[in-house]
């Protein structure tokens, strides 16, 4: 009853000349981005330059007005279950179940991706522990501070398997120590062959992680 047999896409991300215009408003000028497995690409640019729009296009959540975006050679379209299986994304606030605790969320995600039930609890608690919120495992999402909530969102994103991880400013609301933890998680993901594309405003995090930096030019 899972998603069925789906092809495993490699983490090759290609966005060629992708841009987005809605009515008269240009959200993103035509931009090229490419990332290969093991790379971490950092998108940089002022507020409103279109970083989130670009990430949404790469994740297949938004249709580009110009250009094409592919994941592992396949058109980036979230309706395609193969693409969905390949891409984990933290783009805005994911909607959480108000009646599940933090650890319940991770167990649920782990189970739906076919994780071994015998060790699901351990994996979930270990991830929460990595992010320093293991002591909050029995809390409900509405009981978290904004920083804890960001860590929880990162845990949700990293708890599922993916060959491509898209992150929109993962450093938001995190202190220096926690940013290092997040950097470590991202580095582990790239070292294991995953591809990470992220928008980031933190120069230190960018310097630490970026294989390449893509500067997004604002439309105006």
């Amino acid at each position: 009853m899972q998603m069925g047999a789906v092809a495993v896409l490699t983490g090759e991300v290609r966005a060629e000349g992708v841009g987005k215009t809605i009515d008269e408003t240009t959200l993103l000028l035509p931009t090229d981005v490419s990332a290969d497995p093991g790379e971490c690409i950092v998108l940089r640019g002022p507020n409103g330059s279109g970083k989130t729009t670009l990430l949404r296009i790469i994740g297949g959540l938004l249709v580009p007005s110009t250009g094409t975006a592919t994941i592992g050679g396949r058109e980036a379209d979230e309706r395609d279950r193969t693409v969905r299986a390949a891409v984990a994304a933290l783009l805005g606030a994911p909607t959480t179940y108000r009646d599940l605790t933090l650890v319940d969320h991770l167990v649920l995600i782990d189970s739906t991706w076919g994780g071994d039930p015998a060790t699901s609890d351990d994996r979930s608690l270990a991830l929460l522990d990595r992010l320093g919120i293991a002591h909050l495992d029995d809390r409900f999402p509405h009981e978290l501070s904004s920083g804890q909530e960001q860590l929880f969102r990162l845990a949700l994103t990293f708890s599922r398997p993916a060959s491509v991880v898209l992150l929109d400013e993962p450093e938001q609301r995190l202190d220096t120590g926690k940013r290092q933890v997040v950097a470590e998680l991202i580095r582990e993901r790239t070292e294991s062959g995953g591809t990470v594309v992220m928008a980031c405003h933190d120069p230190e995090l960018t310097a630490t992680l970026a294989t390449r930096v893509v500067d997004i030019v604002p439309a105006r």
Binding site: M1, R98, L100, D104, V107, L108, D110, R139, F140, E143
Partner: peptide, 28 residues
């Protein structure tokens, strides 16, 4: 809706996807 604050000691039991989603609703 009133924020949920009780029943936190109960845990979602892992398992097959369909079953775990059903148990999620029972837990809810």
């Amino acid at each position: 809706t009133r924020p949920i604050r009780h029943g936190r000691s109960a845990r979602l039991r892992p398992g097959r996807p369909f079953g775990v989603l059903v148990r999620r609703d029972v837990l809810g």
